[in-house]
């Protein structure tokens, strides 16, 4: 009987812990791993290796900004890819609703209401708004605030605004 009650207790504690963890990661903050080179100088500065997800940076994602969907220029966000809802991408917000953005191939584009323009820091190898256009803000899952792993690179992710992209 001792083992039965022990198992029951263990199950109860695991389920409770899981529920609390899930709630916190949905509503307040969670951790995500960064793969790929699209944000190169900011995340994953080393050379890529076969151990992709083990050596990649891990970042802290806060979800408070989802209450009001208020973002600033230069924020790094995580969002569901518009062409595949199972993938999540991490990019930097370049333009917000109402801005006019300059694109090399195009003249200038006005970002529609409720959308934003995202680009990777490493423009040479990044699949971003330059190929699929502005994305709806509803796809955003959180804002990246800190790098937490590896420990020697621990620190805040700064907000960076590229010059000369917006035309007012």
């Amino acid at each position: 009987m001792v083992t039965a009650s022990f198992l029951w207790n263990l199950t109860k504690k695991t389920v409770t812990g899981g529920l609390i963890g899930l709630t916190i990661s949905d509503r307040y903050a969670s951790v995500a791993s960064v793969q790929g080179l699209s944000m190169h100088p900011t995340f994953n500065p080393g050379t890529p290796s076969f151990l992709g997800s083990l050596t990649g940076d891990h970042v802290l994602v806060e979800k408070f900004s989802l209450e009001k969907y208020k973002f600033s220029h230069g924020d790094v966000i995580i969002f569901r890819a518009p062409s595949n809802h199972r993938e999540k991408h991490i990019k930097r917000i370049i333009a917000l609703p109402g801005d006019w953005i300059r694109i090399p191939s195009y003249d200038a584009l006005k970002i529609p209401e409720g959308h934003c323009w995202v680009e990777g820091d490493n423009s040479a190898s990044s699949l971003d708004s330059r190929s699929y256009g502005p994305i709806p803000l509803g796809l955003v899952e959180g804002r990246v605030t800190h790098i937490i792993w590896p420990p020697q690179r621990f620190g805040e992710v700064e907000r960076r605004i590229p010059q000369g992209r917006l035309s007012s």
């Binding site: 409720g114 709806p136 509803g138």
Partner: peptide, 8 residues
């Protein structure tokens, strides 16, 4: 659907 024009 979360409205594409107003995410709230």
């Amino acid at each position: 659907v979360r409205s594409p024009e107003n995410p709230r």
